[in-house]
Computed example of a mutant assay.
Amino acid sequence: MPTARKRARTYDPVKIRKAVQAQLGNVREAVRTLTPEQLALPTRLGEWTVRELVAHIGMAVTAVHRGLDRPAPARQDATVLDWPFATAASSAAIAEFTRGLAERHPDLDAYLGDIDRTLAELLDAHPGTRLLETNAGAMPLADYLVTRTVELVVHTDDLNAAVPGLDIPHDRQALAACTRLLADALAAKAPGGSTEVRIPPYAVVQCVEGPKHTRGTPPNVVETDPLTWIRLATGRLGWKDALDAAKVSASGERADLDGLLPLMG
């Protein structure tokens, strides 16, 4: 499992806060429309129903609450790029906690509304420099909020996949931050300059060991759209399936990312 040593991309904390709150709002508006039958539908996340998936989205946001409720760590020992590689280790505990949340909160709109309100209060009360203990290590609140865009965007896509016609929109800033963080995670996992991965309009990264490209058209290029990239990076879509469906283009002998994906479990 890689540890990110490369200097992390910087994010505008004001835009990230707005993105998190906007995407949470998009989810809440959609959840209000769901019928009991739709809430009972299966999802692509193992045994979780739509109801449990919504409960998990709330849990992902309230990780901020839980972090701020604990004493601040003495020093930072993780960056935002460490987070994607730390998610798989706690998956069993997350699943159990999620099922309990779904049982305790039958009114999901009220549940998400309370989270939205208390999140705003906490972000008003704490500076972005405040350190949190996270599953990846101690990092600033502002950095941890970037990881919440990944949780919200990925699980919004899971909801849309589970409920036909739901079509919850993705906030542009949330989608951009999610795409960039997962692209940078690929570059951290496979450092190098032989392959260029393009995810317009949000990210371009160099990765994979080999001859470094300096000018002209790169010899190894991968290109796809943001949602396809996010699905590849999180294991919702396989590399070969994406190629077969023409969801991704890959040219050059070092453009095969199959062995590097997914990045998150």
Rank of each mutant, 00 (worst) to 15 (best):
D256Q: 01
Q76N: 04
E209Q: 03
R70W: 01
V205K: 12
R215K: 12
R32Y: 11
V222E: 02
V221D: 03
S194E: 12
V197L: 13
R148N: 00
I230V: 09
P140K: 12
A203V: 14
T10K: 08
L182I: 04
R130Y: 03
D157T: 06
G216C: 05
A92N: 08
D244C: 04
G137Y: 02
L186W: 06
Y11C: 00
L132M: 08
A55G: 15
P42C: 02
R198T: 09
A72Q: 07
L101Q: 15
V146P: 01
Y202I: 09
A177L: 11
E37C: 03
Y11G: 06
T10Q: 11
T98M: 02
T33M: 15
H126I: 06
A125M: 05
S194M: 12
P2I: 06
R198S: 10
P218W: 13
T217M: 01
S249E: 12
V27F: 00
I94L: 14
D256H: 04
T149G: 08
G259F: 02
G46W: 00
T228F: 14
H105P: 03
P36D: 15
A125Y: 11
D256F: 05
P73V: 01
N135D: 10
L34S: 08
N135L: 04
A30K: 14
A74Q: 13
G137F: 04
T156S: 09
G265Q: 08
A120T: 11
V27Q: 03
L166I: 12
D167T: 14
D256R: 02
A138W: 02
T35F: 01
R7Y: 09
P71N: 10
A30W: 05
W83K: 00
L227V: 14
I168K: 10
D241E: 14
G46V: 06
R180E: 09
T49E: 13
R75K: 14
G265R: 07
R5L: 11
L152D: 05
A177M: 13
R215M: 09
A95M: 10
G238Q: 06
R32G: 14
G113K: 05
R66Y: 11
A138S: 13
L81F: 01
N220A: 07
V204L: 06
L257E: 01
V61N: 05
L175Y: 11
G193Y: 01
T217A: 02
T147C: 07
L34C: 05
R117T: 15
A60I: 00
A246R: 15
A185R: 04
L175M: 15
D167K: 12
T195F: 10
A63M: 11
A255C: 01
G46S: 00
G100C: 03
L123V: 10
P140S: 07
